[in-house]
């Protein structure tokens, strides 16, 4: 009898993955059930092989009985890759098109959701500082992963990266000399702590935590690409509730509102740079 191995094996693996995510959710409270499958599967497989196991079910067994194994998977699952002034043209558009809108408010609240190790937060803080908004803006920088949030507070990045970041900063329309913002300690660049006097760093899970303030600008780049469409939609509900009317939403270069139920609630500020303004 001929069994078509491909699809059958695939369906079985799909089932194992769903059971694993359900188990993690019920036992540890972390909800990855609606994360985008393809990259999630890659990372689950990496963990599984490193544990010397052969099936996702075997990994589930170990995870549920050994919290340390779960900790290891958590590290694998959180992709914290980030860059200062990633996509310089985005920061340029922020300066030219969004800052003038922010200036109309006496006090500005910014939410940097999925801030990772803080490179993006410091980029935003530098930009607001140079635009004269440093004193009257507060940035809330949040991430699901408390390890990276603690790291973000330090504002200490690898010196090796400074050449690339300096290039990005210049191309983003930076107005000062980038090296004035940090001091070098060994192989680290430590950014001026006063840049983040007005930054609140906190752990916050976009999947399960609720809104906590009203914002004039929400920056959430390259975070929701890890979510499936239905989860993206839920997070967009959260952002919509968290934005003041005419507040601005900023997404990553390859993300859009197209697949959400909020397309009509926003107007474009800059289509290429993925900047939208809430209009209803």
């Amino acid at each position: 009898m001929a069994i078509r191995v491909g699809p059958t094996r695939h369906a079985l693996e799909d089932l194992e993955l769903r059971l694993l995510l359900e188990g993690i959710y019920q036992h540890y409270g972390y909800d990855f059930r609606e994360y985008a499958r393809a990259s999630l599967r890659r990372r689950v497989w990496r963990r599984l092989l490193e544990e010397g196991l052969e099936t996702i079910s075997a990994l589930q067994d170990r995870l549920l009985h050994d919290p340390q194994c779960f900790e290891r998977l958590l590290v694998d699952l959180s992709v914290t890759v980030t860059t200062m002034f990633r996509d310089p043209s985005f920061y340029q558009a922020l300066r030219e098109k969004v800052v003038p809108l922010l200036r109309t408010y006496p006090f500005v609240r910014v939410w940097n959701a999925g801030c990772s190790t803080g490179e993006e937060t410091f980029s935003l803080a530098i930009l607001l500082h140079e635009e004269g908004l440093g004193e009257r803006a507060r940035i809330y920088a949040t991430d699901i992963n408390d390890v990276v949030v603690r790291q973000a507070k330090l504002g200490t990045f690898s010196l090796e990266k400074m050449r690339e970041y300096t290039q990005n900063y210049i191309r983003s329309g930076g107005k000062a000399s980038f090296s004035d913002y940090y001091k070098v300690y060994g192989d680290k660049a430590r950014f001026d702590p006063s840049l983040v006097d007005n930054v609140v760093f906190a752990q916050h899970n976009l999947v399960s935590d609720s809104e906590f303030n009203q914002f004039h600008l929400i920056v959430c780049r390259n975070v929701m690409i890890y979510f499936d469409r239905s989860l993206q939609d839920k997070v967009h509900d959260l952002f919509h509730r968290s934005l003041v009317r005419f507040g601005v939403l900023a997404l990553g270069h390859k993300e859009s509102l197209r697949f959400t139920s909020h397309t009509d609630d926003y107007e474009e500020v800059d289509g290429r740079e993925k900047l939208w303004r809430r209009i209803s």
Partner: peptide, 12 residues
């Protein structure tokens, strides 16, 4: 990345 019927991007 390819999902069933759609694409996904990552910055891994």
């Amino acid at each position: 990345l390819v999902e069933k019927g759609s694409f996904a991007l990552s910055v891994d």
